[in-house]
Simulated scan of single mutants.
Amino acid sequence: MRELRRTGDSPEQPPATGQFASRRNLLLGTAAAGAALLATGCTSNETKDESDSGKQPAGAPGDKPGKKVTIGFAGPQADHGWLNAINEEGRRRAKAYEDVTLVSTEGSNDTAQQIGQIETLINKKVDVLVILPADGKALTGVGLKAMRAGIPVVNLDRVFNSPQAYRCWIGGDNYGMGLNAGRYIGERLKGKKNAKVVELAGMDSLELTQERTRGFDDALKNYPNIRKVARQAAEFTVESGQKKMAELLQAQPKFDALWNHDDDQGVGAERAIKQAGRDEFVMVGGAGSRHSMDVIKADNTVLKATVLYPPTMAASAIDLARALGQGKGVGGLAEQEIPASLTLYSAVVTKENVDQYLPTGFN
Rank of each mutant, 00 (worst) to 15 (best):
A78Q: 15
N45D: 06
L258W: 12
R92M: 12
A195D: 04
G72A: 10
Y175I: 02
N363A: 12
A39V: 04
A298D: 04
G202V: 00
P133T: 00
P76A: 10
I296N: 09
A272V: 08
S316G: 09
D173Q: 07
L249N: 02
F255I: 07
T101S: 11
E235R: 15
G268T: 06
A201M: 03
K95S: 05
G136V: 00
L28M: 14
G116S: 13
L220W: 11
T17M: 01
G277E: 07
V153L: 07
A234G: 11
E280W: 06
S292C: 09
L26H: 11
G136H: 02
L206P: 00
E3R: 11
G107W: 07
L38Q: 12
G29A: 13
D263P: 05
E119R: 15
A146M: 03
S108V: 02
A35R: 14
P133K: 11
D173Y: 07
K274L: 10
Q275R: 13
A94F: 05
A340Y: 05
E337M: 13
R23E: 06
G41S: 04
V267D: 01
I86S: 01
A35S: 09
K48M: 13
T7S: 04
E270L: 15
D262M: 09
Q265D: 00
K95T: 11
V295M: 10
D52N: 10
A334M: 02
K228V: 03
K55W: 03
D263T: 04
R231K: 15
A287G: 05
I185V: 12
G116E: 11
L156A: 05
V354M: 08
K243V: 10
A347I: 00
A246C: 01
G75P: 07
P152S: 11
A32L: 14
V354G: 02
A35P: 00
Q77N: 07
N260I: 15
T120F: 05
E280S: 13
G172H: 08
I318Q: 11
V198M: 14
K254T: 08
G186Q: 08
F216W: 11
I122R: 12
M147G: 03
G171I: 08
D49R: 09
L37E: 00
L38I: 03
S22Y: 07
M293I: 06
G215I: 09
Q275K: 12
G182R: 07
G268Q: 02
S341T: 06
G81L: 03
